[in-house]
Amino acid sequence: MKTRLFVALLLAALCAFPALSPAAQPAAPAAESAALTTRLALRDLWVEHIFWIRNYVIANQAGNRQQADVASQEVVSNATAIANSIAPLYGQPAADQLLKLLAGHWGAVKQYSDASVGNSAKDKQAAVADLTSNAKALAKFLATANPYLPEATLNTLLAAHGGHHIAQIDELGKKDYKAEATTWKHMREHILALADALTAALVKQFPDKF
């Protein structure tokens, strides 16, 4: 019921934009529509993740505490939305556990950003270690929950994602905006691929829901 409601709400939101409205497109099977809507929803959530973290990094380096605080709050809000998106399928305890892991990911990225501003090599190294450890924990959690998500593959994807955060922070700190633009492009493409992989695994594991 919660999954159907989730899909229905997302379809309603899409209908607010005529060019994207399902009604403006040829009719598709319900299962395909549900899977597509979930794919688009997860893509949007994960792109917001990198968008708000980038906003935090820029504000943090500029010394704009008000902007940084708002961006930080949005990162947490987004992480909560990502975690709660799995609750209809895996239950709220699993969603809560995912939120803790996402909080660990954000905490490590934030620590690296803050350490970069403070020019603390020791804190940056600690942040990288935490980010690496968190990627392994996230991969294990997701692979345990879904047999269609290989742990080794997930760890590679998540480690690369963490590497994008680090590269972006370093490039923005050096004011190498051209390099950061390239990193952002790769980061966005990578996070979309990750979101698509999660959606595909969900559809395979819960065919009756899609």
Rank of each mutant, 00 (worst) to 15 (best):
D170S: 05
A200S: 07
L194G: 10
I53Q: 13
A16I: 02
R54V: 04
P147M: 03
T153M: 10
F141I: 04
S120G: 01
A8Q: 08
L89D: 01
A28K: 09
A159Q: 13
A87E: 01
I166F: 03
L10W: 15
T144S: 13
A103M: 14
L198P: 00
S77R: 14
I58M: 03
A16K: 06
I58R: 02
L99M: 11
T80K: 09
G63E: 02
P29I: 07
I191D: 10
A27V: 09
I86R: 06
A145S: 11
N119L: 12
A71E: 02
G104N: 11
K178E: 13
Q205I: 03
H105D: 13
D196N: 14
Q111V: 05
A160I: 11
D114W: 03
A181F: 13
V76E: 10
Q73R: 15
L158F: 11
D114F: 01
T199R: 14
L40R: 13
F51R: 15
E74G: 04
K209H: 06
W52Q: 08
H165T: 12
L157M: 15
L98M: 08
K124T: 02
Q61L: 09
F17D: 14
I53V: 14
L101D: 02
L40V: 12
D196F: 12
P93Y: 06
K110G: 04
H164M: 12
L102S: 07
A62C: 06
A143D: 05
A59W: 00
L42S: 11
N64I: 03
L98K: 07
A87Y: 01
S33T: 15
I166Q: 08
L36H: 13
I166E: 01
G118Y: 07
S33I: 11
Q61M: 04
S72V: 04
A127M: 01
T37E: 10
W106F: 15
Q97H: 12
H190D: 15
P26F: 03
E48C: 11
G118A: 09
I82V: 10
L154Y: 00
Q66M: 09
A200M: 09
I53C: 09
S120F: 05
A193G: 11
A19Y: 02
S77T: 13
A126W: 01
G118N: 06
P26G: 06
V57S: 08
V75I: 13
L42N: 14
Y177F: 15
A200K: 14
H105L: 12
A16W: 06
F206D: 00
A31F: 01
V76W: 01
A195R: 14
L157I: 15
Y148K: 04
L157F: 12
T156C: 02
H105G: 08
L20G: 08
N155M: 06
A115S: 01
A81I: 05
P88D: 08
L9H: 04
N84I: 04
Q61G: 05
A30M: 04
V70R: 10
Y112H: 05
G118S: 07
L101R: 07
A59H: 00
V7S: 03
L194V: 15
A94C: 06
V117C: 00
I86C: 03
V57M: 03
